[in-house]
Write a protein that binds this DNA or RNA. Structure first.
Lengths: 135, 135
DNA sequence: GTTAAATGATACGTTTCGAGTATCAAATTG
DNA sequence: CAATTTGATACTCGAAACGTATCATTTAAC
């Protein structure tokens, strides 16, 4: 069972690095060096974060990425939604169509109620709370 | 985020049908008709459940599958483990190797603690509890 | 005993998705 | 202008999910 995919993982690592070192702009080259993430892959990820309003970017020499909003307002669940789509645990798909038992399925009902609580807990995690939690 | 895969889903549906209708043996043909699951696919799934000691099987005319153990001892998490492997939410893999930050990663720490509780809740679900929960 | 209906075992195919690469264009600084 | 940076986007590659096909074996009913 996979909660966090590679994109989200890398995005969080990068955001933590940026948020934890207030040196203004971070070019992808620096981040990919420090974090050991392939440069072009990380670049694509950061571009997405920029489009989503989480990072600011500037081109040209001396350019790079910086946070667009404070770390306490960047939620793990936001990043997950961006890179992994809905947080719904189960889509109840049945060969590309909705499962016919969707109304009566007891498994679905149970899972949905667990899910609700789980996502609520996830939703409390922010870049700031992760930083605070560092050893 | 995918909690339950197709195999597990089909397995649970089949187990619920068998447990909910105490008519002895259920051939795959009947189950695949009722549950609208492709016959050969369901068959493979049931064979696995048999090997794992959850179902009994008998060959020949009049044969089919039956529960090997009572519904209240068949756990959702058992079925999930059979068809989806470990329930660990995150493996912290990094190009086939363990992530180098595994000891310091704050994301990992947070997730692990949430995971523990979540899996505990999952572990309370059995075929019997699902049956009891039906409308 | 023959036949039909069932499972056992296992190999194969197909589609989807995650992960990562490649490339050209545009902007900025010095 | 040259170097360095991001913007946009198309592509590749491999693994996993999902499902099919087939031959062998067992058993009940007639």
């Amino acid at each position: 069972m996979r909660l966090i995919n590679r994109n989200t993982d890398y995005a969080i690592k990068a955001l933590l690095h940026i948020a934890g070192n207030s040196s203004g702009r971070f070019p992808v080259s620096e981040l990919s060096d420090v974090l050991k993430i392939p440069h072009p892959f990380l670049r694509k990820i950061l571009q997405v974060l920029q489009k989503e309003g989480i990072l600011l970017s500037s081109k040209g020499k001396g350019g790079g990425f910086a946070l667009a909003i404070p770390p306490k307002r960047i939620y793990l669940t936001d990043v997950m939604k961006i890179f992994q789509g809905s947080l719904e645990l189960d889509h109840c798909l049945y060969r590309k169509e909705l499962c016919p038992d969707i109304k009566t399925c007891p498994l679905r009902r149970k899972i949905l109620s667990l899910e609700k609580r789980f996502v609520q807990e996830l939703a409390s995690i922010t870049i700031q709370s992760l930083l605070d939690d560092k050893p």
